[in-house]
């Protein structure tokens, strides 16, 4: 029997399978995201994310991949080119930003994942000019990235890292309820946006949660 700790890396095909699963979960959550976004945003976040991951699935299934860079880039480019809106650029950058300029890797392990998402976070901040507490996806992404880095520094397994990232994102989503929005339609609501979680942050949580679920499933069946 293998333990969690033995799942230390994923090959490109596994990363592809993982993101196909993530896409499935994001699409399943379209009604939830729509409901959250309708409360304070323009209500199209669920639709946009669903369009983006549908395109990603189409493009991922079309090809066999040898590097994890290509898989992640494909996910990001699919989102960037199909979604439009602020979400298309921001969530596209969540994937493209991290692999831009990264040397090719055949395997994904926790240190590489932490490195990729750390670069993505920086790229998103530059692009969107937002920071933690602005009621955006960064409210979930930044704590998730922090947790990934901590776990990586402590030589934790990929699964352990993802569990922690999911928890960080979840807490971030909760905290986003207390923030006043600095961007988008919610901005014009001022204090009326308080009490509502950010839809983009919720998507980040769903992405980490489903990555964790997929890797956990792999551990169990290994």
């Amino acid at each position: 029997m293998q333990t969690d700790a033995l799942i230390i890396n994923l090959n490109a095909t596994q990363v592809k399978e993982m993101f196909l699963y993530v896409g499935e979960k994001v699409r399943e959550n379209k009604p939830l995201l729509t409901k959250i976004d309708s409360a304070i945003g323009d209500g199209d976040h669920g639709i946009g994310m669903s369009i983006g991951f549908t395109k990603a699935e189409e493009n991922l299934k079309e090809k066999e991949f040898t590097t994890i860079n290509e898989v992640i880039k494909t996910v990001g480019m699919s989102m960037m080119t199909s979604m439009g809106g602020a979400s298309g650029v921001i969530f596209g950058t969540m994937f493209i930003g991290g692999v831009k300029g990264l040397e090719p890797h055949e395997k994904l392990n926790l240190p590489i994942l932490a490195e990729i998402f750390e670069k993505s976070l920086e790229a998103i901040k530059v692009r969107g000019k937002a920071s933690l507490g602005d009621k955006t996806m960064i409210d979930a992404f930044e704590p998730a990235v922090e947790r990934l880095k901590q776990c990586s520094d402590n030589n934790k397994s990929l699964l352990e890292g993802l569990k922690n990232a999911e928890e960080g994102a979840d807490k971030g989503v909760e905290l986003s309820k207390e923030y006043i929005a600095k961007f988008g339609r919610a901005k014009s609501l001022g204090e009326r946006a308080i009490g509502h979680q950010d839809a983009g942050a919720t998507s980040v949580w769903i992405i980490f949660k489903s990555m964790r679920e997929w890797v956990e499933g792999l551990s169990k069946h290994a």
Partner: peptide, 12 residues
């Protein structure tokens, strides 16, 4: 033009 009420993508 983008999707309904959503900006067009950069490549568009």
């Amino acid at each position: 033009i983008g999707n309904v009420f959503a900006a067009p993508s950069p490549n568009n």
